[in-house]
Design a protein around this nucleic acid. Structure first.
Lengths: 193, 193
DNA sequence: GTCTATAATTCGATAGAC
DNA sequence: GTCTATCGAATTATAGAC
């Protein structure tokens, strides 16, 4: 929340911390968890490597801080039901193009168990909660959320990680047109018997 | 030297080579490229680490040999057009469950540029070629193949890598029912205007 | 708060005996 | 073909001077 904050003035180290986190996100996104070294991150942030350890304790602690993420999903109850898929794809694409944190998380989740756990938490909690706003069966809700995650993460994986040419060259609007009906059916479609 | 003799008999080292490749696939699939060490792979195969170097030259060479992969896509021209999506999902799921090579490739592609390049090659060549059997516009064909890849790789990523609970718990048959219509539309649907 | 120096591992790769 | 020994490099993390 806002703070019952005493006259706490911003510490001078806050700027340094922010620079470290920014560099960390870039490196983790570009190189993955194990290839992104504390030395390289510190060099990018133009500070000494030991400062990273001082501020974040360990490489895992640094990643945990750098990979903090909120999907910022819109309130789905205020979206016309027929446009749920479109709104959701567009939101994810915008969220991805504008913030490399999710790319860092995605890449790291492939090899780092902690990152995978965090990814599970984000989608299990935030996405499933959003889907649960219209639907009663918990099992079906979880499955719908999982299917949406499979398409959305596959989109990110092929576009930002593996960089399949046709997925890189296609504009966000075109991707939305193709993928929206998929999410729409996963969200609201009749379950197959 | 000795042999102009093509009746090549199996060398004794072939068994060793096969054991190395099997262990390599397991380790690359479980740990990714950088965490899978030559030492660990050799230990699994119960041989000396230096033998791996002798046979495959380098870690990259070992991965290149271990990640050789063929999607073994069926001939899509002999499939009823309305069932293309179903046939394709079922094929991919079977191919994935039965051979961990693709999981190894998927995990490694997240952090290793060479593995990503191989992944691009597999989907750009094999999958695009299969899609090209029905369709004339090369750009549209590539896009259809890319979209199929995004859903199929997203399925694999959420089920085998991140292990999202709802995607792990769902049976292959149920997954086919949900995902088949998606692939069907990506393959044969009218392009959005 | 910042930096130097270094400990303690671990890895890929090489050399060479047998 | 197989193994021992080891090199050289890179990493995270710590200790301590200033």
């Amino acid at each position: 929340m806002t703070s019952s904050a005493p006259p706490t003035q911003p510490r001078r180290s806050d700027a340094t911390r922010a620079a470290i986190l920014r560099a960390a996100r870039e490196r983790f996104a570009a190189d993955g968890y194990e290839r992104a070294t504390i030395r390289a991150i510190a060099a990018d942030a133009q500070i000494d490597p030991s400062m990273v350890m001082r501020y974040y304790g360990s490489k895992e602690g640094l990643f945990a801080a750098a990979a903090e993420f909120d999907l910022r999903l819109p309130d789905l109850t205020s979206v016309p039901p027929a446009r749920l898929g479109e709104v959701l794809v567009r939101h994810f694409l915008a969220r991805w193009e504008g913030d490399e944190t999710l790319v860092a998380l995605l890449r790291a989740a492939s090899t780092n168990p902690g990152a995978a756990e965090r990814m599970r938490g984000i989608f299990a909690n935030q996405l499933t909660a959003a889907v649960a706003t219209f639907g009663t069966d918990p099992t079906l809700t979880a499955r719908r959320a999982g299917l949406v995650a499979s398409q959305v993460l596959g989109l990110a994986f092929t576009r930002y990680i593996v960089r399949l040419p046709p997925m890189v060259d296609t504009t966000p609007d075109e991707l939305v047109s193709w993928v929206a009906p998929t999410l729409q059916r996963y969200l609201t479609g009749t379950p197959p018997s």
